[in-house]
Amino acid sequence: MTPSVYVFDAYGTLFDVHAAARAHASALGPDAAALSALWRRKQLEYSWTHALMGDWRDFWTLTERALDHALATFPSVPREARVTLLDSYWTIDCYDEVPSVLHALKARGGRIALLSNGTRAMLDAAVKRAGLDMLIDDVFSADAVCRYKTDPALYEMVTTGYRLYPEAVSFQSANRWDVAGAACFGFRTVWINREAQADEYPDHAPDLILPSLKSLEMHA
């Protein structure tokens, strides 16, 4: 069955969360890559921890706190880099292939949506900066339900919003845990395995694994 809608995760899938650290590597010093990895890891960890506690904090707040922890862990990185790195989330780079892939899906008549833990303001800024605002039809943010992936309430926003059964949705994410949550919900899932990682959720396998988004249009 041809999907009625193509839903994409944002961070790590369409947008490169480590682009800022690479761009400012000379100013950040030798721990730039390690700081960026810890920042991302804590950003996600905090979302899950607060969700389990029932203590909602929006994704921007968690992004700030995660960076503060990473900076404290790597004192070699200048503290003044905090502003530059946080600003990067409002001007975050998309992966090179993203515009052409979305153009191709759009040309086929596909409906395209974003489903992310990010705040609506963060996502709108990233989409506009990347020039994707004419390609993405809808943006679904965790803010709307005060829950984080992999809570089914996130994925249900799509089926409720479009009045579709889950199997009519093709969901693309570079985050394996996100793919597992979407598969458990009933979406058709595509794991964009950019780093050739080993699988870790065998009970909720993706329908397709790709090394990037480049060939998605051939399999869609």
Rank of each mutant, 00 (worst) to 15 (best):
Y6L: 15
A205F: 01
A25K: 11
T150W: 01
D58P: 10
S100K: 11
T63F: 02
A168I: 03
A32V: 05
A37N: 07
N175F: 03
P166M: 06
G109S: 03
D178C: 00
A142W: 00
S141K: 00
S88E: 12
L210W: 02
A220D: 15
Y11R: 04
A142F: 05
L102R: 06
S170R: 06
D199F: 02
L44G: 03
E195G: 01
P206Y: 01
V145T: 08
S76K: 05
Y148W: 04
T160S: 12
D124Y: 00
R163W: 01
M157F: 03
S100I: 01
T189H: 03
L38Q: 15
N193V: 10
L135C: 08
P75K: 05
V5P: 08
S36G: 15
R176S: 13
L52M: 15
M1H: 11
P166T: 09
F15L: 09
T91I: 05
D138I: 03
G110A: 09
P99T: 09
A34T: 11
K106Y: 01
H18V: 02
R111A: 14
R79N: 11
A180L: 00
D133V: 07
D58R: 05
D143T: 04
A174C: 15
P30Q: 09
Y89E: 10
F15T: 10
A70H: 04
S36N: 05
M157I: 02
P202N: 12
H219E: 14
G131C: 06
A25H: 11
D31G: 03
A174V: 04
A107Y: 05
M218S: 10
L71M: 07
S4A: 14
D138C: 01
A130G: 08
S4R: 13
W56H: 08
A21D: 06
R163N: 12
A205G: 07
T160L: 11
R176N: 07
E167S: 14
W177K: 13
A23F: 00
D55P: 00
G12V: 02
R120S: 15
A198L: 09
W90I: 08
R147C: 12
A107I: 00
Y201W: 12
V17A: 13
R111Q: 13
C184G: 15
M134D: 10
A66H: 04
V77K: 05
T63A: 13
G131A: 12
T73D: 07
T13I: 06
R188L: 06
V139C: 09
A183D: 04
R194I: 04
E167C: 08
T160N: 11
E80D: 15
A121T: 11
S4T: 12
A25P: 05
A144V: 04
A144P: 02
R120G: 06
L123N: 15
S26K: 14
D55W: 01
V83G: 12
I112C: 04
M134K: 12
T73G: 05
A32N: 04
E195C: 10
Y155T: 06
A130L: 02
A126L: 00
L210M: 09
M53H: 07
A125E: 13
R82L: 07
G109D: 07
Y155G: 12
